[in-house]
Design a protein around this nucleic acid. Structure first.
Lengths: 222, 222
DNA sequence: GCTAATATAATAGTATTACTATCAATTTTG
DNA sequence: CAAAATTGATAGTAATACTATTATATTAGC
């Protein structure tokens, strides 16, 4: 039995040469995920990455314009992957309530299982999403980059789940606000639980994050 | 009639020399607020700041270890100021519901009025809080810096409002989670409204942010 | 009003970062 | 097998994030 091979595409605006098209490209992507986790985005450089993969930094520059755009590439990959998981998780479910519940689970649960779709370590990538996402769009170039479609994948996820919200309650005025609050909130709470615990009430070994946000959404939609 | 002169203190761990103690220190703080707004935190440097205020960058370094700590100083100032406003806004109100409502208003409303407490432009500072906050704690040094008390002021605000939540509903399990979700969410939504509008439903000229989060909190606490 | 202490200015210097450029060696493809 | 494309090796540049040093002001105590 062959396992289902899904393939995640990222907008071509985000790379100079598709990293998925060569061994070097895939090494750049997978090793950058590891390095950003180890060093944090600030201390991560193309030079250090080059040393790790035994390639000159100039080779890395042939794939990505700079590390900022590489970060957006990684985040886009993540959101496309999540979007795929959302479609899959909500397929063949009729009840809008159940559909939304499933979707919220996908959005708010920690990524633990490494069902590794490819050369990408989704668990490590999820940690990058939690710790570094905000840096991708809190820049002076957001508007520009937004026009170029850099944040399409993320917006699509928000749109998909907002539609589920509207399917449950057509008259609800703030579906995007609700869902972006949930997504960002869930990440935030996991980060706080680890580093600034007095800002949250997450208990270890329970899934209070999913519990809290699921309750929240359904109470708001009542 | 003399206007009430309040004074905001920031933890001494955040500066080498108190910028409030000299003309140069105050110039550093007020001009850094302007510059971070103009250039964004990434492009802001002590050298450029020095040029703006006609002082060498080495003089700036005598006040702040680096620009990262200066950012945390500014954010701490903001949260202490907000904490003061919270106390003021909720004073002499008996009803826990009304107290919480007022607090949520202070937390979620845009800072428009420049009731300038000192040399600090609170409107510009609020914009920094919205755009740059996440960069202050999404670093590899969070745990270290948290131990040193760098985030005390923010935690105090969350604690204060969480207590109001508990005053309304003693049995609610997630007060900190709820309030940190509201604070971060409100900032996020204002940022999205300006730069990534498809992630929100904020309508210009209305205060949907305050409306949404106030409704959310009260529904969750029902 | 003078001296000593302190703060600031002026200037220089260093390692690292974030690139860009060039050319040779290797691999791929038609 | 030749041409094209990709990668490696190496060098170089401007800017950043500091640190250090010494001279000049300013202030504070006596």
């Amino acid at each position: 039995m062959k396992s289902l091979q899904i393939h995640i595409d990222v907008s071509p605006e985000l790379y100079l040469k598709n990293p998925d098209s060569s061994e070097l490209g895939r090494k750049i992507v997978s090793n950058s995920i590891e390095m950003i986790n180890e060093l944090g985005f600030e201390a991560f450089t193309f030079k250090k990455l080059g040393q790790k993969i035994n390639s000159p930094e100039s080779s890395v520059y042939r794939y990505f314009e700079n590390k900022h755009i590489l970060l957006i590439y990684l985040l886009s990959w993540y959101w496309s992957w999540l979007d795929y998981r959302l479609v899959f998780a909500t397929a063949n479910i009729d009840s809008p309530i159940e559909k939304l519940k499933k979707a919220l689970k996908v959005l708010t649960q920690a990524t633990v299982i490494d069902q590794s779709v490819s050369h990408i370590n989704e668990v490590l990538l999820s940690k990058i999403v939690v710790s570094e996402s905000a840096k991708a769009y809190h820049t002076k170039e957001v508007d520009n980059e937004n026009e170029k479609g850099f944040f399409k994948a993320y917006k699509q996820v928000v749109q998909r789940v907002s539609d589920l919200v509207l399917a449950m309650n057509q008259h609800f005025e703030f579906p995007h606000m609700l869902i972006s609050t949930v997504i960002e909130g869930a990440h935030q709470q996991r980060y706080f639980a680890e580093h600034l615990p007095s800002l949250t009430d997450v208990k270890k070994e329970t899934d209070s994050v999913t519990e809290f946000y699921t309750q929240m959404v359904f109470k708001v939609l009542q």
